[in-house]
Simulated scan of single mutants.
Amino acid sequence: MTVVRGRVLIVAGSDSGGGAGIQADIKTVTALGGYAMTAITALTIQNTLGVHGIVEVPPAAVTQQMAACLDDIGADVIKTGMLHAVPVVDAVLAGLERPGAPECLVVDPVMVAKGGAILSGDETIAAIRRRLVPRASIITPNLPEASVLLGRPVVAIGEMDQAAFDLLALGCGAVLLKGGHLAGDHVRDVLVSADGLVYFDDPRIDTWHTHGTGCTLASAVATGLAQGLDLVAAVTRARAYVRKAMATAPGLGAGHGPLNHGHTVAPFTA
């Protein structure tokens, strides 16, 4: 019998196409042996071709969802994804003040969808930068998100180290800066914390099936931390999980297709 270890409360938007957002988060946490709970911030009308609409969830309901989970089941880690408005950021911060809320917070600063749709306005970005990021144990921006948070372009591998340290100076405990948007045959991610820099270098996987990679990676890191892994071990396992999920993607959709989140799971037979 599989033992479920690590409770992860995910606060993020729903992706109707199932490749990113809450759907990717739940699949990832489950595939890595954890227990996933959710507080949905918005419903996105979305598929592999892009975001076609957003239906907002009342901010008070976001706090209430968090409270319902924390008051009963509890959580070892909270992970945030799409937070599209300042009142939603306020609602998450209120949820983080609940009795029993864990200290470990993973913030994936989702601001731009894979197809280029802008998901957060300037005021929301400022609230995330000033009020949520300093609460985070780790943030997991890609290069476009890092550029938004820092207010300057980060477009070259030689700029990543300084950008990661500058993001760390915003007050978070660690930064995993992802370099997948850079051109070239190799991908570098940079992890920076009080312990210094760690580089992760791998050959690029030549695929269009990259929808939800950021959500998936952040939730995989959150699961590892919830299960007691140290930061480097959690990131190492998370990256390996995402890379295999990309390499074995099912090839669905006409755009940026979803990953194979279930590659760790054997089909059940009666």
Rank of each mutant, 00 (worst) to 15 (best):
T2M: 12
V3R: 14
V3I: 15
V3G: 01
G13T: 08
I22N: 10
A24S: 11
D25G: 14
V29S: 04
V29N: 04
T30W: 05
A36C: 13
A39V: 12
A42G: 08
I45N: 00
Q46R: 12
T48I: 11
G50A: 12
I54E: 07
E56C: 06
E56A: 15
A60K: 11
V62M: 02
V62H: 01
Q64P: 00
M66A: 13
A68C: 12
L70Q: 10
I73V: 15
V77E: 13
I78K: 07
I78E: 07
T80Q: 13
H84G: 07
V88E: 01
V88C: 05
V88W: 00
V92C: 08
A94W: 01
L96T: 11
L96Y: 06
R98V: 07
G100Y: 06
A101I: 09
P102F: 08
L105V: 14
M111P: 01
K114R: 15
K114I: 10
G116Q: 12
A117D: 15
I118F: 02
I125K: 08
A127H: 06
R130F: 01
V133K: 00
P134M: 10
P141F: 05
L143G: 00
P144E: 04
P144H: 06
P144G: 06
A146W: 00
A146F: 01
V148F: 02
L150I: 10
G151D: 06
R152G: 02
P153Q: 12
V154S: 06
G158Q: 09
M160L: 08
D161A: 13
A164Q: 08
F165I: 07
D166V: 11
A169M: 04
L170F: 06
C172F: 05
V175S: 03
L177N: 02
G179E: 04
H181A: 03
A183C: 03
D185T: 13
V187C: 10
V187T: 11
V187F: 06
L191D: 00
D195A: 15
G196K: 08
L197K: 15
F200A: 10
F200T: 04
P203L: 11
R204Q: 08
H209M: 05
V221F: 04
L229F: 13
D230N: 15
L231W: 06
R239Q: 15
T248H: 09
A249L: 03
P250V: 11
G251E: 09
G257Q: 00
G257K: 01
P258H: 09
L259W: 05
N260M: 10
T264C: 12
V265K: 00
V265S: 03
T269P: 01
